[in-house]
């Protein structure tokens, strides 16, 4: 079984995003970029399924600028077998990403597509579900455990009240939650090896997908800032404050 893993190049999760003064977006110039953390978890899960003998090949895909090659090389260094960069400098919305992924899935015929549950830049939490809809496949979102058994996959999902388990017919779409696994670091030899793994470059047009945005961003602003309040000296002072708030 082949596994497709879409990975997005995003602002590093340790960087505090700054809104541009002109309100057109977030300043990404000279900002550290990395693989979306949930996508690292997706790559890791695919590798574990390969190590278990469930998967035979892992194909990483990224839709983004030429620099997204670095993200794909990271996936290859972790253990993906080959990569596809669908290169574009435009921002591509989840719906269009899902359409591109569907077209790739038609060629690659994966048994599983494992995506992150959300990209930490747009925070959309949509692409996996959209891909599942377009492919007519079942979806196991927010996964904290994945077990493939024959022609089905059992997915444990993190939901509002706790955990939920669903059984899905393959091919299926899985999106990862944080506790699915802890992604490995690529070793130096593997980073070197990744440089010679195949990486194909395509364009959205190769897949016949129109990436024109459906949503127009009119403005991006800073959220209302909270300012630091006061520090109290001891517990008694805190109790007094709680009384003022009417909760003690």
């Amino acid at each position: 079984m082949k596994i497709l893993v879409p990975v997005k190049r995003v602002i590093d999760y340790n960087v505090k995003p700054r809104v541009k003064a002109d309100g057109t977006g977030v300043d990404l110039a000279n900002v550290k970029m990395s693989m979306n953390p949930f996508d690292e978890i997706a790559v890791e899960e695919a590798i574990r399924l390969k190590e278990k003998g469930v998967a035979t090949e892992i194909v990483a895909v990224s839709v983004g600028p030429a620099k997204a090659q670095e993200t794909l090389r990271t996936a290859l260094a972790m253990g993906a077998d080959r990569a596809i960069l669908v290169q574009t400098d435009d921002e591509v919305e989840p719906l269009a990403v899902a359409k591109i992924l569907k077209a790739i899935a038609e060629v690659e015929q994966p048994g599983l597509v494992i995506l992150g549950k959300q990209a930490i830049d747009d925070d959309s939490n949509q692409t996996g579900q959209m891909l599942a809809a377009l492919m007519g496949c079942p979806q196991g979102t927010f996964a904290s455990a994945v077990a493939v058994d024959g022609d089905a996959v059992t997915v444990t999902r993190e939901v509002d009240g706790g955990l939920e388990t669903v059984k899905l017919a393959l091919p299926a779409i899985v999106t990862t939650d944080l506790r699915l696994n802890e992604p490995r670091y690529a070793s130096l030899p593997n980073i070197m090896k990744a440089k010679s793994k195949p990486l194909a470059t395509k364009s959205p047009a190769d897949y016949g997908v129109d990436t024109a945005p459906r949503l127009k961003t009119l403005k991006v602003s800073e959220p209302p800032v909270r300012s630091a309040g006061i520090k109290v000296a001891d517990v008694d002072a805190l109790v007094a404050k709680l009384k003022e708030l009417g909760i003690a």
């Binding site: 919305e93 989840p94 719906l95 899902a98 925070d123 959309s124 939490n125 949509q126 692409t127 996996g128 579900q129 959209m130 891909l131 599942a132 809809a133 377009l134 979806q139 979102t141 927010f142 999902r157 993190e158 939901v159 509002d160 945005p213 459906r214 949503l215």
Partner: peptide
């Protein structure tokens, strides 16, 4: 935007060929 809402809505959006607005 609960876990169920987030699970279902994008599936609806894609079937309608619509870009969802999240959260």
């Amino acid at each position: 935007a609960t876990s169920n809402g987030k699970n279902i809505a994008p599936r609806v959006a894609a079937l309608l060929d619509v870009m969802q607005l999240s959260d």
